[in-house]
Every structure is written in structure tokens, then in C-alpha cells.
Write a protein that binds this DNA or RNA. Sequence first.
RNA 1: GCGGGUGUGGCGGAAUUGGCAGACGCGCUAGACUUAGGAUCUAGUGCCUUCGGGCGUGGGGGUUCAAGUCCCUUCACCCGCACCA
Length: 834
Amino acid sequence: MVPREPVFTLVPIISGDGSFLVLNGRNWIMSYNHQEIEKKWQQYWNENETYKMTDDPSKPKFYALDMFPYPSGAGLHVGHPLGYIATDILSQFKRKQGYNVLHPMGWDAFGLPAEQYALDTGNDPAEFTAKNIATFKRQMNELGFSYDWSREINTTDPQYYKWTQWIFIQLYKRGLAYIDEVAVNWCPALGTVLANEEVIDGKSERGGHPVERRPMRQWVLRITEYADRLLEDLDDLDWPDSLKDMQRNWIGRSEGAQLTFSLDGSDQSFDVFTTRPDTIFGATYAVLAPEHKLVEKITTADQQEAVAAYLDKVKLKSDLERTDLAKEKTGVFTGSYAVNPASGEKMPIWIADYVLVSYGTGAIMAVPAHDERDYEFAKEFNLPIREVVAGGNVDEEAYTGDGKHVNSGFLDGLEKDEAITKSIEWLESAGKGEKKVTYRLRDWLFSRQRYWGEPIPIIHWEDGTMTPVDESELPLELPKTTNIRPSGTGESPLANIDEWVNVTDPETGMKGRRETNTMPQWAGSCWYYLRYIDPNNSETLIDPKLAERWLPVDIYVGGAEHAVLHLLYARFWHKVLYDIGVVQTKEPFQKLFNQGMILGEGNVKMSKSLGNVINPDDIVHSHGADTLRVYEMFMGPLDASKEWSTNGLDGARKFLDRIWRLFVNEDGTLGSKIGGEAGGALEKVYNQTVKKVTDDFEHMHNNTAISQLMVFINECYKADRVPTAYAEGFVLLLSPIAPHFAEELWSKLGHNGSITYVQWPEYDEDKLVDDTVEIAVQINGKVRAKIMVAKDITKEELEKEALANEEVRKWTDGKELKKVIAIPGRLVNIVAVD
RNA sequence: GCGGGUGUGGCGGAAUUGGCAGACGCGCUAGACUUAGGAUCUAGUGCCUUCGGGCGUGGGGGUUCAAGUCCCUUCACCCGCACCA
């Protein structure tokens, strides 16, 4: 839906100087020419390098960061700028408050869509990406963002990914990057492996293609080694609670015990993980995941057929089916038995897909009386259920609550916590188990079999060893090629480029082959916020002195979709860089904010198929960038999802026009109401406005800041004079939101140069309240009268005034006054009964 | 199922520590200027009313002089995770 063309764009410009009159029927209405003004100031900022940040250590620093975009072919849509506008407002606000503001932008430009597009069209992904970046940058500039483009970074630039590769080598050297044979999410359509997080309901996050499990040799990063630190350090971050909880759940720390079960009649054994070692006496059977290594070995001849059939069935189930049809428990008996280390009893060993191979040890002891899943399974297959914790009715359902232990030998009579401690002590002394912490978080699958990513800087030698590429040889550049088709075998297209893949050690003459896998898209975005600080350093990733001055990021704004992927990975890398002394802060992003989504009219997602996508280019053309900025901020709280409304957009433009008509006469000169000394009718509302807007910007409550600016303008219309100081202060308050418009008004007010670094206005606390204030008087909690009293009236006087009021007496006459609560500056409440 | 969040006029949304519910905007109504209005300016606009007032922040209960705000309970919707032992 294309927004209705507002009336002010339909007509010829007849007066220069920023104003223009629009012909509406037969009347001339003054409006402002956003196209001319916005272009003029964008050019000015560019020519004067207004937003170029020169580090000035004498000033306090402020680092305002946006999540940099993937430059897709579609360009920006109106949802994108929401967060960008917010950080831009904060940056402009802080500049005026005397901060040295770092506000950069860049491009997360590696990744599947460009490669997919290149495959489909035969274009070079690099060319295609460059074109998209140019579009994004034009759009951002047209929205008036105050980015310091001299710090622009691009993850596909060899001078950038040189350092991405350098970090990989450091990870490798510290044993945090390793190759493992893992069952991976192989996506045949994309020809690559995907991380768990990139698979949604058994389909690829990008493209929605089916994904299957396949064992492969892959690079993996040992993020689990940092699990505890990633968890603990969340506590001190100023992030939304929901987001912190998502990360906590994702890491999924779980304390319990690992214990060993030996096989009956065999010297083999297997380990299980449990959070309830205290229920060991209630373990009546054991379950292995279908993919468990031991399955083949322990299946007896009798059960061979049944087990094979079950394994086939499980393999055919997609991930989606395995989780979605979850309620029904399936499984098969292996024929073998394990020995319960506590009771010495024989426990049948089953295979069931409700046990996941990737969590814990891939095997469990089943305690049906006290675990819902085991209970269901036991009911399904008629396995014994033995109560070991009193308090429930195990004939009816599993009892997971606390209670005294029964049927549990040395644990009898103990409560849950004591029993857990004691059972672990016993296991350890008996050599049958130990205390253990397990995480839901898995190591990070880091290889992609794609062309369009950072080459992993490793060489595999013919003698079977591997070494990282020497750091002096970085960047290891991605070779140009015309064939970027996946090989289909699981190797990346790089494998086909002989002159790139094959290497010979110049000293020993040993032959080797380069790693052909590339890094996932997350790699480049893991550390880009560091490079902005020192973008052109060819010696090191970042100058340690600059890192110390500028970190952590003061405000990081982006979508909630990155809650667990990007943000967890970036925190992980940052901690590694902290450990090797590159940075001095434990965490990269001290404060984080998730902006909400902008939905199409009717509260539905904007999408091409619905045809309801709003293109910011259209709005910039019809209403202007300043209007778009005002509107998006005025829609509601930054973190809420909001519905796009064309009427609301028109309202934002009307507000700007209203300001224009106040500040500028029809002939383009300064508005005739503007002038004179401070004070007068607007004094109070002006000071209130400065206070509220300052406060609101600090907390990113931009919607209420705008409403206060509207209040001020409404008051100006009622006043017959707007003092110059107030007019100037107002323009400063408005300037972070509507920068072009404010610059133009600033020059109308007689100033040369940009408003960007003009000192932020101050307010006078004494002018916020009148000498006399209105106080509401309640009788029994209902407002019955309002009285005017001196602002510094005492409690006693206030009470007296209230009781003397005629209107109040109507309600209190003939009644007994039980109590009078008088709070100066607030209200009076009289409790009266008959 | 678990975790987090949200429920306020016709609509988007405001409301320090509990202290005048509905700021501001949209929409709507009336008036002014007009041959004309999708412009502009002014005024009005929570609901009901016998015009005294009564009722109102998803529902029910509670604490309090006073509750959108605190407590208990319940319903609806949104987001994330989901057989994690």
C-alpha cells in the first residue's frame, strides 16, 4: 500500500528560502520544503565532515552502537530505521551535552543470501554486495543519520577479515577451535551445514529448506568452556530481563551427578547424567538414545530385529516429527540389563528417542515414580514403578516434589536436598559416580561449506598434521572464481580451486591442502564493534589504549532475534579477547535495548506477499526524513511492536509544519512572534519541556519527549510572543529527532554553521512550578474541589484552607470528620462519615 | 508444560515513591475563514445520567485515607524455549 500523497507535495514551490506555499484549492498554505532542506543539510554535513569523530580524551566518551545490517537486495524497510533513529537521537543529544560520541555503521556482508543470489543469477557476490551496500548507505544518509562514515567497516573486506582470521588462529592456539566428527544439520538444498540455531522446526532458517542429520568432520568452537562465565557475567549487564533469561535458558546449566552403570554379565559400562541422584533406588530401567554408541554392542540376538526396525523408524523421523509428536513415547528393549549400583537390582536397558544423544551422556537412568517422562514410558511398556520419595500418589502420576525418602536404604527419611548431597557422597566414595554440571549449550559448529565467507586459515599437511596460516600471511584472501557452486560432496566450492587449495611448505617442501570450509556469518559480527574504535590499524586488531577508553559499548540497540545467537557468540569472543589481553572489559555491551517491530496496517507482519511493505524512500520523498523520524519515535515505546498508520505519519508532518509556521513568516524571514527577553507566559512550560525532554532522551522515551515538544508548541500558539532564548532552546531539543529541520530553523534564527555541537539547553528548577498551585481536595477519596494555594504552604495551613472551602463544606456539613490527610504539593483527602 | 511480557477511551498511547486516570497524537463533532475543504485556526470529545450525580484501567477478591500502580486469584493474548533427565 503506497501512502496517500499528502497535500503539501502536490503543488509548486513559489517562495525560496526553505518555505513554500502550497495551493490547496484556492488558498495558499505555508509549508516547508523538505526535499530542498534535507538535501541541503545532508550536503552540508558531508562537505564539512560534521559527524566525523575526532577522539578527544578531555571529553567523556559515549559509544552508541546499532546492530549493523546485512545489506540485502531489498534495501531498508521502515522497520530497520526504528533502532537507528533511537541511537541517532541519543548520539545527537550526547554530542550537545559535550560527549565525544562514537556512532558508526558498517556491513555484515558475508552470508547465504548473497551467495544464493549469485548462484541464481550468475553474478559475483562481491559485486552484488557492493551494490546493495551503496543502496543501504544512500538510504541511511537520506534519513539524516549522523554516522561517522570514516569508520565504516565491511566484514567482507580483506583488511577486516584479516583480523577475523587472526582471532580464529588465537582460538585455535588456545584449543578453543577443534575438528570433530559430529552429526550435523546438513541442508542439501543449501549445500551446507547449519548450526542448531539456524534450524527452525527441522528446516533451514534461511529459505525453509529441509535439513537432515549427517555425520561430518567439522570445525567446532569450544564455547562450552566459557558457559559458566557467560552465565555469571549476565548478572551485571543492563539488558532486558527477558533477554538475559533467554541466554540463561540457552546455556541451560544443570547441576547433578554422573554415574556409571555396569552391564549385567559383562565388564562394559555406561554413564548417565541425572539431576536427581537421590532417586537412584527408584531407577527401575535405563534408556539409551537411539544413536548411543553402545546400542549395537548390547543388543541381544533375540532383540536384533526389533532394535534395527526401531532405529530405522527413528532415522526416518525428521527433527520436526521427533519434537512435535513428542507426547507419545516409543522405544524398544535391547535384551540387556544394567545393574543398579545402589540396590544391586537388574534394570532392563531400553532404547527410546525421548532420550537425546546430544545432551548429557545420551543415556539415562529412568525413575518412573519421580519423572514425568519416565512415568509415561513405564506406563506405555509396563515397566515397574517404585516410589522412593513420599508425598505423591505414584499410582496416579509421577511425583516430582519434595518429601521424605523411602525404600532407599541409607537415604530413607531424608529430604530431597540432603538426599542429593548424601547420594553424591556415597557415589563418590563407592567410585560409582561424581558430582557433575551439564549444559544445554553445545559447542559452536563453525564450518560452512560455502564460498561467500571468511576462509578458515588452516593448512592440512600430507603427513596428517595441521597448522594455522602464519599470521604474517594474513589475510588469507578469498580467491576470485566463477564457479561458486557447492561441490555437493560436502566440500566447499573452494576445493575446486587447485591453485588456491594446494600449498607447499617453502622450507621443507611438504605438500599441504588448505582448509576449504569457510566461517559462518556470525564470525564477522562477533567483534565488529571493536574495529570501529580503531578501523584502520594495520598493526593490531585494536590499539589497547583506545580499547580501554572506548569500551564497553554504552548503548547497543537491535532486534530481539539476535538474543541468543549473535549476542552469545560475541560475548564469547569478547571473553577470549579479554583472556589474551586484547580488551580490558569482561563484557562488550554494557547496556542493550531491543527495539520492537513495525507491523503493517491491520497488525500483520510487513511482507512482500501481502504487499504491505512500506519503503522509507517513498516516505522520505512524500513526507521527508524528519517526518519519518518524528513519526517512528512518536508511535509508542521503542521496545513495543507497533502498527504503521498513514494518518499518524500525516500527524507527524503536521506537527513540523505547525512549528514552521510559528518560526518562519511567509516571506521566509524569522517568525514575527519570535523575539524578546526570556520570561513571560512561556517560562514555566519552557523549563518543564527542557527538563522532560532531557530526561526522556536519556532513557530513550522518545515518544513522550515528542509529546512534550508538542505541548510547548501548543502553548506558543496561545502566547503572543516566543522569547528568542526559548525558541532557540526548543530547536535544540528538537534537533536530535528532526536534524535537517532543526538546522534550517537554527539558521533562520540567525546562526551560522551547524547546530550539531551547540550546547544543550538547561532548565531552572525554580521555574518549574508557579508560586500558587492547584491542589485537589478529596472527600472519601473522590475529588470534590480544587483550591489554589501557595506552593510552599504548610500541612496545617493546607488542611485549614481545604476545610474552609465552600465546595468542600457542602460535602462535609453535618458529617463527622474522621481524618484529614493533607500533603502539600499533592492533595488533601478528608474522611467524613455520617 | 517451563520462562519472560502485555491487557487503560473509537484507535496509537501518557500517568515519580501508591496521591486529580486518559497527557500528546489520530479519529470524530461544532464553529470561524471560505463558492468549495482531505488545509488552517478555535472549542469540544471515557461511559451512563432522572443533570444531583454514578461508573470506569481484562474479571473476581484483598491491603490502604487513597490502587492502573502493592498482595492473592482468575482469564485472554504476545514472545522465547520445549522429552535438556
